[in-house]
Design a protein around this nucleic acid. Sequence first.
DNA 1: TCTTTACCGATTGTCGGCAATCGACAGTCG
DNA 2: CGACTGTCGATTGCCGACAATCGGTAAAGA
Lengths: 211, 211
Amino acid sequence: MPDLEHRSLPDSVHRLLRNRILNNELPAGTRLVEMSIAAELGVSRSTVRLALTRLADEGLVEISPRRHSTVTRLSHEDIQDACYARYVLEEGAVRAVLAHGTADLVHPLTELVERMEHAARDRDLAAVVDLDTAFHGHLVAAARKPRLAKLFAGMDAQMGAVMRSSLEEQHLDLADMPAMHRDLVDALADGDPSTVADALYRHYLREDYVL
Amino acid sequence: MPDLEHRSLPDSVHRLLRNRILNNELPAGTRLVEMSIAAELGVSRSTVRLALTRLADEGLVEISPRRHSTVTRLSHEDIQDACYARYVLEEGAVRAVLAHGTADLVHPLTELVERMEHAARDRDLAAVVDLDTAFHGHLVAAARKPRLAKLFAGMDAQMGAVMRSSLEEQHLDLADMPAMHRDLVDALADGDPSTVADALYRHYLREDYVL
DNA sequence: TCTTTACCGATTGTCGGCAATCGACAGTCG
DNA sequence: CGACTGTCGATTGCCGACAATCGGTAAAGA
């Protein structure tokens, strides 16, 4: 077991389980039994319980009262729904960003896109997903709206699941990811709100992106 | 019959504490000690702990690791931030609503506004706040975007706190609330997206609304 | 008197156990 | 043969206890 003792125990368990779910080591529908997980990781059931609750808040796990928890199965509608929510939040953040100007945003975002190009060339799925998260996180953070950023970050895990699912089912190609983000940066550099909004909409909701 | 959904003990404790905070029985800055609350309510500390965690997720309570929890004190910036996040979510929902048409929305919303007028005439603060929550909740639900609605509902408690604070400090009058919502209904009936967006922006972010 | 440090009370982090509840299965009755 | 019901194992909901850690305070040194 890798470093379980880095932060608080429930947080560590939470991250560990989240990674397993996102890497499909725990496929959708898997039954998650508190006692088994606790025994495997060498922690208490209460700790596992708290981690599962947080995963449920993130939408990765469903808890049936008095029964057992299962890994959430994302339907086509779920994916569209998640993408729309993500789009709304990011668009709201970007509107605030544009009021301040995007000058000091273009450079770091461009650098992230370049790193994403390298990762995509190496077919490194995990790295691309992480860079995607970093890219959008950086963009939203620039809005200086803490609550908006927190809501946005709360959907990171679900969006990771969506991306992996879309990539796996070939509705999206790893090689296209950097270009999609470069379009976003270009729109930001342009600075026109409706241009950016359109670019964001395409980024999240173009019909060939989802299932 | 609200307590027929008496799902779980932590949920009950969570609702109880939330009501106390919103009614200012537990003013901002109050220290919340798990053991004391557990003793008073006759439940276990673990149960209280879970309730406090949920309150922290809602933004009503701040948990300092290894120390104690306190009722969040909302600063001027916090209030603006919360209102902006709420505005972004509702605007995103309304955009989806407008695509379906607002015909079957105007009537129930108008009825809620009328009930709000009665409550405002009676100076019934709690009823007005509840009707406000119901109004916006109904509007967002019409978008049929579950994740968006969930994020929106997650801010209900904070917005309740904001409203009570604004009313208490006389930056907002109870009597103005129904008219503010009627404006929103009128804009919805009109159906033009930018008209509705403007009305929403004024509703949440006009400068005399917040502290 | 001011600074440093060791201690103490208060509070949380984590744990394992007990009882309640649910689904599955088998036995029984029509 | 099918439907109903009582029982059993599996799993969670909740609990009290123990250990770790923090802030404050009082004692010691300069």
